[in-house]
Design a protein around this nucleic acid. Sequence first.
DNA 1: AGACATGATTATGC
DNA 2: GCATAATCATGTCT
Length: 442
Amino acid sequence: MEDGQRMYSQQGGLTNMSGNVLPQYNMGQDEPSDQRKQEIGDILQQIMTITDQSLDEAQARCRKHTLNCHRMKPALFSVLCEIKEKTVLSIRNSQEEEPPDPQLMRLDNMLIAEGVAGPEKGGGSSAAANATAAASGGQPDSAIEHSDYRAKLAQIRQIYHTELEKYEQDLDLSDGSEIKNSDYEAKLAQIRQVYQTEYGKYEQACNEFTTHVVNLLREQSRTRPIAPKEIERMVTIIRKKFAAIEMQLKQSTCEAVMILRSRFLDARRKRRNFSKQATELLNEYFYSHLSNPYPSEEAKEELARKCGITVSQVSNWFGNKRIRYKKNITKAQEEANVYAAKSAAAHEGQGAAGYNVGGGQAGMYMNLNGGDNYQSSDNSVGDNVQNQITPHSRSQNGSPHDPKPEDSTDSWCAGAFMQGLDGDGDNYDGSSDEPGLKRPKI
DNA sequence: AGACATGATTATGC
DNA sequence: GCATAATCATGTCT
C-alpha cells in the first residue's frame, strides 16, 4: 500500500482516503526529525494495511499488540476517529428507523390466526437464544474474515433452501382429492411443527451470525475507527438481510396453510352421494327403528363401518332423515313400507328377527299429524294399519338427549305414531357418551 | 336448464 | 354436546 507511504510526506499533513489534505493534524510539533517521521510512517503503514491482514492468526495478534502498545497509537487513532466522524455523519443520519414491513406483519397475523405461529412459541425462540448465547460465549474473541462471512451466509442460505425443499415435500398435498378432518388437523400440526423448527433455526442462525459480526467489529474497533453506532447499524443491516429469509419462510408457511385450507374446504364442500348400499343400510336401520330413530354411538359406529362413511356422516344422515321424514311423512311412509316389505321378505319365517317392528310383519303404523291416518296402498305391507299409539321413549334407555318426551303418547315424531316396537331393544343402550367427531371450524 | 334429492353446515335451544 | 330446523351447495334426473 503506497498511499500509506505518501500520507505523511506531504507537508506534514495527513490525507484521508480520498487524498485530501488535512493540515491541522501535525503530530510532530517538536523537532520533527527524520526518525520520528519514519516511526509515524510505520504506524500508519500498519494501520492502513491491517485490514488486509489475517486477523485470527497468532502472528497477526502479535502485530496488533505491538501496534496497540505503540506510544503514538492513541493519538493517531483519535485522528482516524475524528476524520471518520466527519465523513460518516451524513450516512449515519440517513439510517432512520424504518417501520415494520407491512407484508411481514400480514404474514405474521395470518400465521397467528391459523395457530401456526402462536404466541406461545417461547420454546423455540428461547432455545435459539440459549444456543446463541452458548455459541457467543464459547468463542467471544473469535474473529472471522470477510470471506468467511460470505461463506457462512451462503451456507445458511443453502441450509435454509434445502430445509425449505424438504418442508414443501413433506407438506405436499398433491393427491388432495379427499382430505378428512383428522388429516386436516394432522397437516396443520405438521405445518406448525415444521414452521417452528425452521423459525428456530433461522433465529439461531441469525443471532449467531450477528454475534459473530458484532464480536469481530468490536475486536476491530480497537484498531479501526468503528463507533458503537456503526456496529448497531451493521446489526440492522444484517437483520434486514435475514429478514428476506424470514419472509420467505413465513410466506411458504402461509401458502401451505392456504393450500391445505382450500383443499380441505373443497373436500368437504363436495358432496358425494353415498353408495346405494350405504343408503340402503341406513334406511334399513332408520325404518326398522322408526319408533326411535336415534342410533346410539355404537350403532352409529357400526353403521359407519358398514357403510364406509364417518360417524358424523351417519349423524348427519340421521338428522336429515328424521327432519325430512317428518316434513314429508306421506311419502316417507311409502318408503317405510317398502323397507318393511323388504324386511319381511328377508326374514320370512323368522318372526321379528330382522327389524324391530312389531310382529315381524310389515308393521309401520303411523298416525299422521294428530289423526290423519295413513294407510299404505301397498297391501302387502299395509294390511295391519292401526291407530296405535305406542309410548316408546328414549327416556327408558337413558340416552342423553331425549327429544320431546312431552307426554306418554308421544314419540320422536310428534303426530306420527308408529307401532314399531323395539322387540329386541338393541337400538338404545344409553352408553353414547363418546365425544362426537368435531370438524374444525373454518 | 330446472326441479328435485341429498349431504353438509349453521343457528338455536335445551 | 346433541337434536332440530333451516339453509346451502352439489349431484342427479328429466
